[in-house]
Write a protein that binds this DNA or RNA. Structure first.
Lengths: 116, 116
DNA sequence: TAGTCAATTAACTGTATAGCTATATAATGT
DNA sequence: ACATTATATAGCTATACAGTTAATTGACTA
């Protein structure tokens, strides 16, 4: 058993929040809900995720407060209830793009085969 | 073997970035570097993390572009190279705090023992 | 060059979890 | 009540990885 970790338990919910956003499948779900509310079948069709697996991810996202669950008759609709999610993703995407550009520039500079 | 996932490979770096921030130990490291550059021993003392474990986390954080590694003589100094990290953590913390307050309010409203 | 201290890496174990199949629950129609 | 369709859950396997101990590398010094 690991023992580590001290008086830092206030970090737990923060880490958990990031963890929910750290899976491609869940990011896919969030993205496919950007255009609006969808039920589980629609999300499944849009993402290609298996039914049971999808259900688990939806539960996690809902528990994290990222999605809202709205049963409606026989089906269940989900929507992104936390705009912060998009904001976070955008910030990270921008940063990644920025880094890739820097790397490209660096590569060009280092490239001995370049004709410049 | 799972097969899932489609044309969504552009999400991989985003998920990876969030994953790096999804561990308490790594958040601890980031926080303890908020006050400035520290070497590995100092970070170890501040966080209580084991030496080898710490080293692995530092490597991950550096590879993610969150920390910068500065060897200096016999020891190696690290610093947060990406201010976005703090920004993300603050956003998430604020949101969590907000939710906890809402829950508390909700609890008070539901509480039959309340004297109000 | 041998010795020492700092940091990294290798190898291992235990735990968490993504995705799977099969089953159960829930809402609606016959 | 029974069948049907939509979600959710249980149970399983394989993989990823945090934390551990032990060995290794690297920089400096006597």
């Amino acid at each position: 058993m690991p023992q580590e970790s001290n008086n830092m338990e206030f970090l737990t919910p923060v880490a958990e929040y990031f963890k929910v956003l750290s899976e491609i499948s869940r990011l896919q779900i969030v993205i496919c809900l950007k255009s609006g509310t969808k039920n589980v079948s629609e999300i499944g069709a849009a993402t290609g995720l298996g039914q049971a697996n999808l259900s688990k991810h939806l539960k996690l996202l809902t528990q994290a407060g990222i999605l809202a669950r709205k049963p409606q008759g026989v089906s269940v609709y989900y929507e992104v209830s936390d705009p912060l999610t998009f904001e976070l993703c955008e910030l990270v995407c921008d940063r990644i793009y920025q880094r890739m550009q820097e790397q490209a520039k660096q590569f060009k500079k280092m490239n001995s085969f370049s004709t410049n």
